[in-house]
Amino acid sequence: MTDKNQDIDQETGVETTGHDWDGIKELNNPLPRWWLWCFYLTIVWGIGYVIAYPAWPLVNGATAGLLGYSTRAEVATEIARFDDLNADLRTALAAADMTTLGEDQDLQRFAVAGGAAVFRANCSQCHGSGANGAKGYPNLLDDDWLWGGDIETIVYSIRHGIRNELDDDAHYSQMPAFGEILETEEISALVQHVRSLSGAEYDAGLAATGADLFLENCSDCHGETGLGDREQGAPNLADAIWLYGGDPATLEQTITYSRFGVMPPWGTRQVNAVAAYVHQLGGGE
């Protein structure tokens, strides 16, 4: 095959490439040359790309590329940019008078959105992702507050925590373990009285005995009618909400051994935001 035009396919009149596989020949419909140049261009581009951008995998990471481009750095820049955009809002929030936060819609939205994120990361472990609490961990959606549900008290509670030893200003109170003070029968009587306060079913005979015991032992903190005292974090016993449970067995346990729920102090960063979030969950005062 010395002459390139020698081999012409009879059917189509198109020359063949001259290749012959068991009598099957390949037609040669030449591609345009610019196509070939485009192909070479992609190779050149590829080489340039490998030099300019991160490409070759190494043991730890990859070659950095001359442009020093990195998606992580890009994300970091983006985050920094948005942080800058929000800098004013953040400063304003840190210095804000929380009682009038609702007057500034933008600031309120910023606080609630940021607080929600912080809450999910730091608070949801105990209080639940829906903020509805768990046994021993208060439900933050309802209107029952141990230490107070106005925005300033919420800020204080988050900042200093409850019954912890890390912050001297933490809310502090302790109920005695009445198992060491009262007899078992007396505690059972107290339980029936406490149940009567919130309108639950109770044994009237025992409750009468319990009423006297309650006045003697409990009313200093929980009040004579059991409405509680936020100054001391003493729960309201006359409402429908129980932190640990309102059934006789749980109440007996609570009175016998007492309870000692602890929350750590959260410092000052973003506390206003979390407080704003918690305050607007439906129970804020």
Binding site: S129, N132, L141, D142, D143, G199, N236, A240, I241, G282
Partner: peptide
């Protein structure tokens, strides 16, 4: 409807959905 939680009890015993 917010289903986390499905409902909560308020201190007066009423039930609230969000």
């Amino acid at each position: 409807p917010v289903r986390n939680p499905q409902f909560i009890t308020m201190s007066d015993g009423s039930v609230r959905n969000t």
